[in-house]
Amino acid sequence: MNDPDGKNRWDSPCFTPESILDPTPIFLSLFKKAPPKPNQATENPPLSSTNFLYDLDSMTETVTDELIKAKKSG
């Protein structure tokens, strides 16, 4: 195993066992600190249209009708 590296976030905890005796820093970090900016991992993707199947059916019917008209006209 490698020795802990203080520059690496996982090797440098925000709170050490000594700081657990004082709950104030933990409270401040949980409830008083501004939340981080949203990023790709935390944002919800945009929802697709709720009428997708209806729109797809409508367009398919239009194309089918045009093909039938073209076939009838020769």
Rank of each mutant, 00 (worst) to 15 (best):
K7M: 10
N8M: 13
N8A: 13
N8V: 14
R9G: 00
R9L: 13
R9P: 13
W10K: 14
W10A: 15
D11P: 01
S12C: 14
S12Y: 07
S12L: 08
T16S: 04
T16N: 02
P17V: 01
E18V: 10
E18Q: 13
E18Y: 11
E18I: 06
S19L: 05
S19I: 01
S19D: 12
D22T: 07
D22K: 05
D22S: 02
P23M: 03
P23Y: 02
P23R: 03
T24V: 12
T24N: 07
T24E: 08
I26H: 03
F27V: 12
L28H: 07
L28C: 00
S29N: 10
L30E: 12
L30Q: 03
F31A: 13
F31W: 11
F31T: 12
K33C: 00
A34G: 04
P35E: 13
P35L: 09
K37W: 03
K37R: 15
P38W: 05
N39L: 00
Q40K: 15
T42Y: 07
E43F: 06
N44L: 14
N44F: 11
N44M: 11
P46K: 09
L47I: 07
L47C: 08
L47Q: 14
S49L: 04
S49N: 11
T50E: 13
T50A: 13
T50V: 06
N51T: 08
N51E: 07
F52T: 09
L53Q: 09
Y54G: 03
Y54C: 02
Y54L: 12
Y54P: 04
D55G: 06
D55W: 02
D55Q: 11
L56F: 14
D57M: 02
D57L: 09
D57H: 12
D57P: 05
S58G: 01
M59N: 04
M59L: 02
E61H: 08
T62K: 14
T64P: 00
T64V: 01
T64G: 04
D65Y: 05
D65W: 09
E66T: 05
L67G: 05
L67Y: 08
L67S: 07
I68M: 06
K69N: 12
K69H: 05
K69I: 11
A70S: 09
K72F: 01
K72G: 00
K72D: 09
S73Q: 13
S73C: 00
S73G: 01
G74L: 01
G74M: 06
G74V: 05
